[in-house]
Amino acid sequence: MAEMTPEQLNALQEKIKQMSPEELKDFQKKQCIFCQIVAGKIQAKKVYDDENVIAILDINPANPGHILLLTKEHYSIMPQIPDEEIAHLFLAAKQLSNSILRSIDAQGTNIIAANGIAAGQRAQHFMLHIIPRKENDGLGFVLPQKSMDQAQIDAIGDKLAAALGMKQEEKKHSQIPQPRTPAPKEPMPPPPPPQQQITELQKDPSKKDSIDLDDISRILGVK
């Protein structure tokens, strides 16, 4: 986007403030680089395309063949996506992962989604990363193991179970042994080099249903 004068920026900010929620959504879409890729206005190396999703090669790949799988509709985070689209998205991911294993020299794949800046989300358009893996490829995803006491397990577990509509009848197990998966046989790969600075801004996931004017103005570089 071309640089704007302060006057133009002010005018734009005024305009944004007067927009209806629908107009704002439309405006956000126009600012989204991935929506422009979906629309064909920005070039990308497309490897799959259907009525709901599009898959492109990541230009900053974790490994060669790293695919970004996007919904054509603009969603900021996964909880906004309806069930049928979730089904379609992940069935496409399954087949693309399969394609990676069969066409390029990969020994496994990771599928990663990030919701929110704290989770490493960099773009405002929800996407899945499908990453080809090889032994000793230098990727060091770190998942620490944090233990919880029984009170914490019960409190968190019951909260989630209630939210997910699970009946509370399994309370007889008061002491839970650790159903932890065994440690990998091979040593962990070395930690990754310092991670890239995250410069893009995205929506605060806690405000998933509203569009924040501050976010939009920050995208536009407004202080």
Binding site: L101, I131, R133, K134
Partner: peptide
């Protein structure tokens, strides 16, 4: 996805990751 939403709404998380490993080189244990 529903678990992710429940985590957002009930545990005060700032974000969630969905993470899948296929095959040992991808970290599957």
């Amino acid at each position: 996805n529903k678990v992710s939403s429940a985590i957002f709404e009930n545990l005060g998380a700032q974000g969630t990751n969905i993470f899948v490993s296929n095959g040992i080189p991808a970290g599957q244990t």
